[in-house]
Write a protein that binds this DNA or RNA. Structure first.
Lengths: 336, 336
DNA sequence: CTGTTAGCGCATTCAT
DNA sequence: ATGAATGCGCTAACAG
């Protein structure tokens, strides 16, 4: 089928292209009669303006990019869900880019997006990212960015997070209340500020409850699953093994279960585990796992809303603001 | 920062725009020396061609759309993961659209995408979809479409599915082998061919094992969670309740767990459940749930590969082909 | 109220 | 091997 364009509509109606264009955008300077004729023909021929011509002309793409480490993870899926909902409501399109925790990919995406493909970026940092120079280039090109969850503290813009310090404190306290006295923290990435905050909450909770901190109980994990597995294994098979584990991400909790199974360590009993996790499938979960659950859907919506707010106000640089949502501790201790 | 364009590069180098354009696309008719000069300046100024101008001119967007019912679900997340990987490797961009099972939204997306925004579409049908006229319009506009999982049988194109009939048969047989004699099937949507196949497998397994089929044991669920909950509740609280349940989607299995909890029916024991599910977090799962797990990542990759294959061959209509991948039955029966 | 013209950034045809 | 000119489809400034 031949593309129906303004030109073809204009020809059919014996009008100028600009008249048709204005009629379709409901300009006040076009007669009701002409508008009606144009609209009805456009509808009849199923006219849809070419988005690329429009974007080229308007210097605005009505598209946003979401850059995130991974998607096979309920937290990020729910975030996307929230983003997509707000984008749809605003008539925007959503491009997805996955970094798989690679700083290199993250930088490549960002650099690529300076070409005008998107009007704004929503992003959660890769765990590998240490050098953030690529993030500054976005500013140079006047492309607003909003961070969510794995935020970049040093960039001045809107950041949507949760109360990670408090959650870390609560999670640790939860284990203490359950009788744990040797509590380990599994860090997902040294670089991420959210991880540092969770860990600080852990440390302070230990201190406030007069539990001695042991350095070997903090395990710094990375993107290498096998390495993580081995680290956790040596943690749990040590002479002085922990009786409680606080995992900063779900994936590490899963590894714990697997290691425990291999070492024939019981859960619950010898080891209690609490983890950040956003599996909505609470009832499908292993009943021994307590979780800190983040309001992921809401995070996505708020992050997107911040971006669209900036678009409406024609702001290219967002103000430096932190939006902090509250996570929920869900206890699923089967021993009670 | 000012946008760097072919024009600005040309000016700086005292060359014509067309020369710069050709140099950058490595045309044979440009001298090595000029190419070198152009490339180095382009790199220095971080030149990226404007994608919209390029798309307008080339009549091709280097973008694909993924339309699916939802994303907060491990199956679809993994599929997207696979799609994104292949798209990235081919230099394509991925737009995401969520229908939330609404036929109306699905049709609106499709109709919108006839404007040239994307070069192709990857899609999994909404459960509500009965009228498929909107799918035909894509053909009229020469936009190739590939279906995955929830495929549309009557459209001639590539469809990537799993062996749903066999899986349904195996799942039912699994319950029979575990001693169940009154087995219920929870259908997620009457309209979806994959659901019909899973059900047919269920029916044939019952027949082959001489188990009488009871109409009230087939529960047709929909997108209304509360309604589903009530249907499952009345199923399980009936005088003749099933002792085994085969859920066609994970969400319905979750509902079963919740209903069982409310009715104080034990799992495993009084009721055994098996469900299609793609939670990779096997070890976090309730140890009583056996699952049929689909190769979701692979499905995404194959679907995307089919589309890019068509692009390379400049085919607008894909051949009518069915790619069938194999699901895996994972037994997690804690009673053993 | 409507038409004419220009130009967004790029690729491409035609000329040299 | 390079330059000039055209047009993709659209919006917007200017003209009447």
């Amino acid at each position: 089928m031949d593309q129906v364009t303004l030109k073809s509509l204009a020809k059919e109606l014996n009008l100028a292209i600009s008249t048709v264009s204005r009629a379709l955008s409901d300009s006040y300077e076009i007669s009701a009669e002409t508008k009606e004729k144009v609209h009805s023909l456009a509808k009849k021929l199923n006219y849809h303006p070419n988005p690329y011509a429009r974007s080229l002309r308007k210097r605005s793409s009505f598209t946003i990019a979401v850059i995130l480490p991974e998607i096979a993870n309920n937290f990020f899926s729910l975030v996307i869900n929230g983003i997509e909902e707000i984008a749809q409501a605003n008539g925007y399109h959503v491009l997805i880019y996955l970094t798989h925790e690679s700083q290199e990919k993250e930088a490549a995406f960002i650099r690529h997006l300076t070409n005008g493909r998107v009007d704004g970026v929503l992003m959660s940092l890769s765990g590998e990212t240490e050098d953030i120079s690529h993030l500054h280039t976005l500013k140079e090109y006047n492309i607003p960015i909003v961070f969510f969850d794995r935020i970049c503290e040093s960039i001045h813009t809107v950041k949507v997070t949760t109360n990670d310090y408090e959650s870390g404190y609560q999670a640790t306290q939860h284990l203490i209340e359950k009788g744990c006295t040797a509590i380990s923290y599994l860090s997902s990435s040294k670089n991420l500020s959210i991880d540092q905050k969770r860990m600080q909450g852990y440390l302070d909770a230990l201190k406030d409850h007069d539990i001695a901190f042991r350095e070997e109980f903090i395990v710094f994990c990375s993107n290498d699953a096998e390495l993580n597995y081995n680290k956790i294994k040596s943690l749990l098979s040590a002479a002085e093994a922990p009786d409680g584990i606080f995992a900063s991400v779900e994936l590490l909790a899963i590894l714990c279960y697997e290691v425990c199974k291999e070492l024939k360590i019981g859960i619950p009993g010898q080891v209690k585990i609490i983890s950040f996790s956003n599996l909505r499938t609470a009832s499908l979960l292993n009943p021994s796992l307590s979780t800190i659950t983040q309001p992921a859907f809401e995070i996505g919506k708020q992050a997107a809303a911040a971006l669209f707010g900036a678009f409406r106000k024609n702001e290219t640089a967002l103000k430096d603001e932190k939006i902090v949502l509250i996570s929920e501790l869900i206890e699923r201790d089967s021993t009670k």
